[in-house]
Design a binder for these strands. Structure first.
Lengths: 223, 223
DNA sequence: GTCTATATGTTGATAGAC
DNA sequence: GTCTATCAACATATAGAC
């Protein structure tokens, strides 16, 4: 009965169509951009049809938003879980700056490393949020990042009580810019980073980023 | 003779076709991305035809590279001029870190501010270099940035003699990520930056960036 | 140098069978 | 849910007149 139904048809090949579409869309959007990746190429890579994609997502734009949300949400959830845990443990005391920055930065590296096949494409997803047509993603950006930003901003203000909120806000954005750049894979092939000898590991890059951002945040007021 | 020739034909409307094409392409590539901006839309905005664009640039891809080169080259020229002048004045002594960073960062702001109508679109040009299909721009990136990078990297090593070259290389890339983010206009509309009260001026942002990057570079070794 | 006209392919979305 | 077939619109590039 239901066994026969699940075996018949094209759903039998393992993995449901919706998930295959998300995976293919992620890869092709990352490689070719929103306009460059045609719905036909995506659905062909997913082993399905254009109309199946429109059935599941309604439009190409909605498919883009679904791919972005799928990757960003777990990172931000992890960030907030870490921050919650740290604040509970600190029992009201301000968190050390390095600890706070690590809670914000590390999840991006962890989730990227945890993607099996998506790892190679994950790198460009964050960048797309900042280069694809704003009308497609600005609402999504607000939805995904506003609650996160407010929590970390408040924690930074407690960690740096002598800083103006403008200085903290700017420095926080500076750090976000660095993170997007690194997550987009621009360190690979960057001139002068690990030239000749060893390319730095994720762990090295993260440690340097925390040190750089912490020093930068502390020093940003010496303007 | 030549006067008549210059008056007749469609070149008389002021501003030559090539320049109008570059201006229109810049705007539409910035707004819609490489694939999103059609050659038809660009040539129509420039008041000319598709075949004129292909005559002047050969292909849509070459037109993209020309728009990028047109904006990036003056910035890098200015950077190198400043660095040359500073090193001559220092007569062999290492340059102060803040001075060096200012020479790298300020030209980006200056050139952006100097564009009359291009200013609104300039912001996304740098970002496009880092999100458009790599095969279209990676050679161009190397051509435009390698000589620049080598000069500034050497100057940074002299300014920070106790830092490893890996630490300097990474921190330099961190700063580049911040600059691209800021030049891409993501500060505008960023949550928590100048919310309510005054939005920071270019001069304020630049001063904060120099202070942030200088402190970050000095502190990046405390990993 | 610039145009009109056109060749040739692709796009996103939908209608309707199953 | 997924398919095939089809639509109107649009793409890039070129040919050839002027």
């Amino acid at each position: 009965m239901s066994v026969q139904a699940s075996v018949s048809g094209s759903a039998a090949e393992g993995g449901d169509t919706k998930e295959r579409l998300l995976a293919a869309a992620e890869r092709l959007f990352a490689e070719l951009g929103f306009e460059g990746a045609s719905l036909r190429a995506i659905t062909q890579a997913a082993g399905t049809s254009v109309s199946a994609a429109n059935y599941h997502f309604g439009s190409k734009e909605a498919l883009l938003r679904a791919t972005l949300r799928r990757r960003v949400e777990p990172v931000n959830r992890l960030r907030l879980e870490r921050l919650d845990a740290l604040e509970v443990a600190a029992a009201g005391a301000p968190l050390p700056l390095e600890t706070l920055l690590d809670a914000f930065l590390r999840p991006a590296f962890e989730v990227r490393a945890a993607q099996h096949e998506g790892a190679a494409y994950y790198r460009q997803i964050a960048a797309r949020l900042y280069s694809d047509p704003p009308e497609l993603v600005s609402d999504l950006k607000r939805e995904l990042f506003r609650p996160l930003f407010e929590r970390f901003f408040a924690a930074l203000q407690r960690a740096l009580p002598d800083h103006s909120s403008q200085a903290i806000g700017l420095a926080f954005q500076f750090m976000v810019g660095t993170l997007i750049y690194v997550m987009s894979g621009h360190l690979e092939g960057a001139l002068g980073v690990g030239d000749g000898d060893a390319r730095p590991s994720d762990e090295e890059v993260l440690a340097r980023m925390v040190a750089y951002a912490a020093a930068g945040l502390r020093g940003v007021c010496a303007a």
